[in-house]
Design a protein around this nucleic acid. Sequence first.
RNA 1: GCCAAAAUAGCUCAGAGGUAGAGCAACGCACUCGUAAUGCGUAGGUCGUGGGUUCAACUCCCACUUUUGGCUCCA
Length: 580
Amino acid sequence: MKQQIDEKLARVRHSMSHVMAEAVLEIFPDAQIAIGPAIDNGFYYDFDLPRSLTSDDLDEISERMKNIISEDKEFKRIVVSRDEAKKMFADQVYKMELIDAIPEDQEVSIYNQGGFTDLCRGPHVESTRQLNPQAFKLLNTAGAYWRGKETNPMLTRIYATAWNTPKELRGYLKQLEEIEKRDHRKLGKELDLFSFHEEAGPGLAYWHPRGMRVKGAIENFWKDQHYKNGYEMVGTPHVGKSWLWETSGHLDFYKESMYSPMEMDKADYYVKPMNCPFHVMIYLNGKHSYRELPFRWAELGTVYRYEKAGALHGLMRVRGFTQDDAHLICTPDQMESEISEVLRFSLFMLRSFGFTDIAAYLSTQPAKSVGEKENWDAATESLRKAIEAEGLEYETDEGGGAFYGPKIDLKVKDAIGREWQLSTVQFDFNLPERFDMVFVDKDGTEKRPYMIHRALLGSIERFFGVLIEHFAGAFPLWLSPEQVCIIPVAEHFNDYGQKILSALKEKGIRAYIDDGNDRMNAKIRNAQNKKVPHMLILGEKEEQDLTVSVRYRTGKQDNGITLDEYVSSLVAKIGSHEDL
RNA sequence: GCCAAAAUAGCUCAGAGGUAGAGCAACGCACUCGUAAUGCGUAGGUCGUGGGUUCAACUCCCACUUUUGGCUCCA
């Protein structure tokens, strides 16, 4: 049923895109038209136009579309021969290219809606009557390479959203507003969490004290859990001599996205784009027996990669970031249990941050790859088994693995249904070989260990961005930069406030007192805007009875709780990751 | 990197070929207050950077930087 609705809506959107193309051609008769598919939430069409578009142009296109729709034009499907098609689209270079790309055994169809004919496989609605002129909106223009290839010409793409009814349209526009409200760049500034600096380099995040409180809470939890789950921490440098990167292969494959080397004592040092070669160095430091394995070495390692200028995006895409990295080095026998264990641990971590809707993606051996096929197959199977054992929904991306090994990616859904890829668990058949890593097996011979690379949160920066958007800036108690704001109702009660403050601080609670000149109402408002989970309102009653009155950021409150009772419940809530 | 747009006070924004304005924040003074903004006052800007046009540029033009929306990329 859902699928039928989706299909119908896809028809509406696709038909809308033809209407838009007609409108654009009315204004620019010489425009070259490319493709115009339905997409999630709407449609787009790519054009080669004589000039760039303004927002006035979009308004005019939109008006013309409404006129075309009101003319009740029929969408007629006509099958034509290749030659006919080529004659019809002789002056449309992109359409000519598309016609040539249609396989011989497929028929060539065109759709006509009166004033406009497009090469198209369809399907469409029967008539523009089935399109609602009040249920679409042109959103923005964007550059897009013809057929998505960087070397092809850049076309002008018009994005639009389209629905069956104006109500659905309004719902979607509201969703867009919601996304804007949650934007981590906006909230990061408002909540004073982090900043970027033009003078100091793009894509490099600066953590403010309040942001660092959250980051610290994430990292402390991360470290504790790693120690509890059989990991050891390692620490490695930020730069390494070119030998490392030549041996690892990074200089061959990723040189253009590494920061340029710096010369010291006639050697080239590179800032690290990955932690793995460093962890390998620790492994190579000694001879290892099968008895020692598996090694599980974790590090919050900050790496630097030259991301293209146009790709940078707040904390989500930066040039310097901290991977919550670990490498598992194990014997072939241990592979399966290590994989299922690391997957279990990933899920535990993600759930600890409040993500419950998690899906897995399995990527298998690509055409160009290193390593033995049987190893790939065994590794891929152990990944698949682990996913199935956890009962996760998953999709397989055949041939989608990296050249050095198969992988599992985990994606979570946030509070408003958007999917984010966080965890990744990747086999590496490349590095053990390149660095000639070995262990001594039971029979006394040297064997190659398996190496698994994994990050659970991905990068701390990006994960932090995702958390901000997921919680809309209202972090749960355990993550909040400030957990409690103490608000004396008047200056007279500041001393009592200070007493409560020290009691909370003693328990390691992130609390502060607002003992400024403002009225209580203003103090509440300020704390509320900072999304502080608890506000303690302190006045005469509280001072007399040695109690606190808690106002939660939801507006609810609990009055007259004894200090002891409050502190113990607060500590318990923080420990159990409760929201408030 | 490519296409398009933007950049004005700490923040959010207004303005305009004759060298700038609001609200909030900051600071000072008064008020001493019970659940989302007390009042009054003060200070704060080479209008992103560098060139050009002009008697005169923050405003027009060019380049650069950064940001935004996409495309491409993402070990």
